[in-house]
Amino acid sequence: MSKELFDALNYLSKEKGIDKDLLMEALEAALISAYKKNFKSASNVRVALHEETGKMQVFSRKEIVDEVFDPQEEISIDQAKELDPAYDIGDVVEVEVTPRDFGRIAAQAAKQVVTQRVREAERSVIFSEYQEREDDIMNGIIQRVDPRFVYIDLGKVEAKLAESERMQTETYRVHDRIKVYVTKVESTNKGPQVYVSRTHPGLLKRLFETEVPEIYDGTVEIKSVAREAGDRSKISVFAADAEIDPVGSCVGQRGQRVQTVVDELRGEKIDIVEYSDDPVIYVSNALSPSKVTKVIVEEENKATTVIVPDNQLSLAIGKRGQNARLAAKLTGWKIDIKSESDAKALGIVSDEDLKMPEEKNDAQNLLFEDMDDLFN
C-alpha cells in the first residue's frame, strides 16, 4: 500500500473536517473485506497499517491446538513453538498472510468502501453542524418551489419549507434571499434533512435578538411571544434594571429596530408590551393599544374579566377577535372583555368602581400610539 494513500487520507481529513481515525478504521474494514473476498479467508483476520512507511500487513489469528482440524482457524502446537517457544495450547497466534499482489487488489476493493465511509462521515459532520442550529434563524436562497415545499439552499444542505410553515402574505420566488427558523434536523439515508419555518414564534424572537443588543446580551428579556404570522404579533419584554425601558429598547429610535423586524416579516404588525408579574398590569398591557378601565382576576381559574370604555370595546377585541386572542396567548390568562355599560348592567362593577383613578403609564400609552402610527 503506497504512502500516497495515507497522504490522500490526511488531505480528506483536513479538507472535509472528518476525523482521521474514522477514515483509518474505514480503510482497515475495506482491506479486511477485500482480503476475505479475494482469498476466501476465515473471519479472524487483522490488518496493520503503517502510515510512516506506507506498508500494509495482513495477519491471520489462529488458536493453538494439539490436533488441527481447520487450518484457517487453528495451528498446531509444534508450528506455534517454532514461532515462539513460549506459546502453549489455547493461546492465539498471529501469522502474517499478506499476499504479494494484495496492494493492487485491496486498492481496487477499498476505493468504493472508503468512498462510502467518507460520504457517511461527511454527512455526520454536516448533520451535527445543522443540528446545533435548531431553534435558530439562518439565511438561505430559494432554489425551487412546488405545491408541497419551498426548497431553500442553506449552504451545505437544502432545507424544506412546508406549505403550513409559509406566511400567506408572502410570495416565494426562486433566487430570493430569505431568513428562516430551523425547527427540526433529521438524519436520513440521503443525508441531513432540515425543516424550516416562516410562521414559528421563534422566528420573531430571534429577529429581535438580532436587532436589539439589549436582548442579545440579556439586559432585556423576551418573556412571551404570540403570533398570527403575516398579520399581527405581540411580544412581552422585561428588564430587571428599573432604569431600562424594555419596550423602548425594542422599538428603537424613531421605531427603527421594530421596523426592521416588520420589514423582514413583510409588514406583519407587532405590539411590544411590558411584562409584569401582576396579572392586572400584564393583561392591561397585553390588550394595547386599547385602554383598560379595570381588570378583575380569578386566580383559581387563571381567568380575568377586563372592563374597557364603551368606545374601546371593538379595539380591545380586535378584528375577528384577534387582539383579545393574541393577548390571551401572550399572557396565558383567559380574557373576557366587557364594555363599561355592559359590566354595570350585569352588576360586575358599579359607578363607584369606575370612578377609581386609573393607574396608567402615560409614556407607554403614547409609545403604543406611536407604534400604531408606524403600521398604519
Rank of each mutant, 00 (worst) to 15 (best):
M1Y: 04
S13Q: 06
K16M: 15
K20W: 08
A26M: 12
L27M: 03
A34D: 15
K40N: 11
S41T: 09
A42L: 04
H50P: 01
T53A: 09
K55T: 14
K55R: 11
K55F: 12
E63A: 02
V65S: 01
E67G: 05
V68Y: 08
V68M: 10
F69K: 12
P71F: 15
P71S: 15
E73Y: 13
A80Q: 14
L83P: 12
Y87N: 01
E94H: 01
T98I: 12
T98H: 08
R100P: 10
F102D: 09
I105L: 15
A106M: 11
K111L: 09
V113M: 10
T115Y: 15
A121W: 11
E122G: 00
E122P: 15
S124C: 02
V125F: 13
Q131R: 06
D135W: 08
N139V: 07
I152Y: 13
I152P: 02
G155N: 05
V157E: 15
R166K: 11
Q168R: 02
Q168P: 12
K179H: 06
Y181D: 13
T188Q: 07
K190P: 07
V196Q: 06
R198P: 03
P201V: 05
R206N: 14
T210P: 11
V212W: 07
G218S: 08
K223D: 04
A226K: 02
E228D: 15
E228C: 01
D231V: 00
R232V: 04
R232M: 07
K234D: 08
K234V: 01
V237H: 04
F238S: 00
F238I: 03
C250A: 04
V251N: 06
V262T: 08
D263I: 01
D263N: 13
L265Q: 02
V273W: 05
Y275P: 00
D277V: 10
D278F: 01
I281T: 05
V283Q: 07
V283F: 06
S288T: 00
K291P: 05
V295C: 03
E298W: 02
E300Q: 10
N301T: 09
P309G: 04
S314T: 02
R320A: 14
N323W: 00
R325K: 03
D336Y: 12
I337P: 03
S339H: 06
D342W: 04
A343V: 11
L346H: 05
D351T: 01
D353K: 07
Q364W: 13
L367E: 13
L367V: 02
D372K: 06
D373L: 09
L374I: 13
